[in-house]
């Protein structure tokens, strides 16, 4: 029998990041009410503060906000590319043990990125080696995880490319010869290679034209549901958040201004900032 209990994969508590002078006093002098993330009395930028959320298996959580709102910083702290100033980020691993991502050494974090946590970047060049074939890009995380059988690597790469709707006759072509949408599908295939419980999506369709983006979004939604992965989707685009996520939060000036069920939040926004954002998006 399938358990209906919600399995929390990612738990973010009190996450915060100060850039510049690390003055904790800057926190009370910044925020949406004060209209700035930069401390007016010093050189501290409160890029993110008091960020709380959790994501369960098979669920996609959206982070939305304008440029400079702190959404990318939140993402990069979870990914480990930026060290956090405060908070905890707990990940439920495949073996069901839990680990605080913020307490890891760089090499432990890289090890985790092989099969526990993947990132799909806005720019395919950040997530792929464009001078390598589509199959080779998938072979990378597989060999990192210890795969040493050429036939099995080919089989798994073909399976993933089929899953992400990349024609198999392109498997042995260099990724730099691919279109933008196709590169993004290869990036998806690579991110899913070792069945990670958590995948972070950073503006996954921003560089694509509308019709291609729609196809990729359909695919991402389907993959999240069918594979039961927990996803965090960072985007400035309401259409992306609406299509992919069931819950989301809105960020402004480094703070979370609203969090809730995506449909509800978009239909009936409470925070004035969210109301303005939604109105602008719907106009």
């Amino acid at each position: 029998m399938i358990s209906t209990e919600r399995q929390v994969v990612l738990e973010v508590r009190g996450l915060g990041k100060l850039f510049g002078d690390q003055d904790p006093g800057a926190v009370v002098r910044t925020g949406p009410e004060l209209g700035t993330a930069k401390d007016p009395q010093g050189n501290t930028v409160v890029a993110a503060w008091d960020v709380d959320f959790e994501v369960a298996a098979g669920e996609a959580f959206g982070v939305i906000g304008e440029s400079g709102s702190g959404k990318s910083t939140v993402m990069r702290m979870i990914a480990g590319d930026v060290t956090a100033s405060a908070g905890t980020v707990r990940l439920r691993k495949r073996d069901r043990s839990r680990v605080d991502l913020l307490g890891l050494t760089p090499s432990e974090r890289r090890a985790l990125r092989i099969d526990e946590l993947s990132i799909v970047h806005q720019d395919p060049a950040d997530g792929l080696d464009l001078r390598v074939t589509a199959g080779g890009n998938i072979a990378d995380p597989l060999t990192a995880a210890g795969w040493r059988n050429f036939g099995q690597i080919r089989e798994r790469a073909a399976e993933l490319l089929t899953r992400t709707e990349v024609p198999l006759d392109r498997m042995d072509d260099l990724v730099k010869t691919f279109s933008g949408g196709m590169k993004q599908r290869v990036q998806l295939a690579r991110a899913l290679a070792n069945n990670p419980p958590l995948v972070l999506f950073d503006e996954p369709t921003t560089g694509l034209d509308a019709s291609v983006a729609a196809g990729v979004l359909d695919l991402i939604r389907d993959l999240i549901e069918s594979l039961g992965i927990a996803a965090v989707v960072v985007s400035h685009d309401f259409a992306v958040i609406e299509m992919l996520t069931s819950r989301c939060m809105v960020m402004q000036h480094g703070r979370m201004v609203e969090q809730g069920v995506t449909d509800q939040l978009l239909e009936d926004p409470i925070a004035p900032y969210t109301q303005r954002l939604v109105a602008a998006a719907r106009a």
Binding site: R110, V132, T133, G135, A139, D140, T143, A144, F150, I153
Partner: peptide
């Protein structure tokens, strides 16, 4: 240092392909 030789394996994979 981390015995991270995945990219060497990728180059061998590409060679065989």
């Amino acid at each position: 240092a981390e015995a991270d030789y995945a990219r060497m394996w990728v180059s061998l994979y590409e060679d065989v392909v």
